[in-house]
């Protein structure tokens, strides 16, 4: 496959996944900010995770719910806004229009057309949750249409690769930001606030029910970290993402991806053979920082091996 086409498939999927992750983060943060309205910390979380705090503060000064919502959801000048993610997904899909299935194209194109309507109408904190739910639904539809209709060839593989690299990156980042935030809490407020923050984190990755099912016990940082880093059966965990990434990399034709495969296998081996005790002994923050660096490196290697080959 042409490297440029592979790149478009990969970024189409990454952008759609990023839109979903941003929507999940925003949803939880807006709810949390209602819980203790005096603090702006919760509103800063989605900005921190998406790496856009500085740009936001330069343009808006104070993070009000309305401003954060607009910035992350609709702002056409924020390259990482949901609006721009969907626009990028659509532009990339347009280039590979003849490679993807009709269902998939109509899915991406339809999403973009509706996104423009949301953009024209604007959002306030009352309409936010229905918008964020819509984003999640469209992302589910996108993945479902692809999974249900695409031939299992490199077209499919590169789009799956984009989805899971982006998801792994997001899970690692959100866990990392929350970990830092929670360790900053005042000791006396710790227990009650911690509970809500961990619960919110779980909800943002659809992990609240999973947690209850698996642990049937109170929420502890160790278990949340275990669920989101090491559990193979948790679809948004790092280990599950890397399981998919390795599977997909193994199926892509040709030998160009040797270094990408090696890197991904190393990360997977670490996730497979670590215990949560090891991770806490090394320090959760340090582990997550190095995982995030590894994911970035893997993304670069994928680019180098496949997407800008020769």
């Amino acid at each position: 496959m042409l490297s440029r086409m592979a790149g478009c498939l990969y970024w189409m999927a990454r952008n759609m996944e990023r839109a979903e992750n941003t929507a999940r983060l925003l949803d939880v943060s807006l709810q949390m900010s209602l819980l203790h309205a005096s603090s702006q910390d919760d509103l800063l979380v989605p900005l921190d995770v998406t790496g856009s705090t500085a740009d936001f503060l330069r343009r808006h000064h104070t993070p009000t719910p309305q401003a954060v919502l607009h910035y992350l959801a609709l702002d056409s000048e924020n390259p990482g806004s949901i609006y721009n993610c969907m626009r990028n997904a659509r532009e990339n899909a347009h280039v590979v229009r003849v490679k993807i299935t009709t269902e998939m194209w109509e899915q991406v194109n339809g999403t973009w057309l509706e996104m423009r309507e949301w953009h024209a109408r604007g959002l306030d904190t009352r309409s936010a949750s229905s918008f964020l739910e819509w984003v999640r639904e469209r992302s589910h539809l996108f993945r479902g249409a692809g999974y249900g209709t695409m031939l299992r060839n490199d077209t499919f593989h590169f789009s799956r690769l984009g989805t899971f690299i982006e998801r792994a990156d997001n899970t690692a980042r959100i866990l990392n930001v929350k970990t830092k935030q929670i360790s900053d809490n005042e000791p006396e407020a710790e227990n009650i606030l911690d509970y809500y923050q961990w619960a919110a984190l779980l909800r943002s990755v659809s992990g609240f029910e999973a947690y209850r099912d698996i642990y049937r016990d109170s929420i502890t940082p160790e278990r949340v970290a275990e669920l989101l880093i090491l559990r193979q059966d948790m679809p948004r965990s790092l280990r599950a993402c890397f399981g998919e990434i390795n599977k997909v990399l193994g199926r892509i034709e040709g030998h160009a991806g040797r270094s990408a495969r090696r890197r991904a296998s190393e990360i997977q081996a670490r996730l497979t053979y670590s215990s949560i005790e090891d991770i806490f002994a090394d320090g959760l923050e340090q582990t997550l920082d190095s995982l995030i660096d590894d994911i970035i490196l893997l993304g670069n290697t994928i680019h180098h091996s496949y997407l800008e080959a020769a």
Binding site: M1, L2, S3, R4, A6, D154, F158, I252, E253, G254, H255, A256, G257, Y306, L307, E308, A309, A310
Partner: peptide, 9 residues
């Protein structure tokens, strides 16, 4: 002349 593909030139 070569084209850039995912399995090399």
């Amino acid at each position: 002349v070569y084209m850039r593909t995912t399995s090399g030139p």
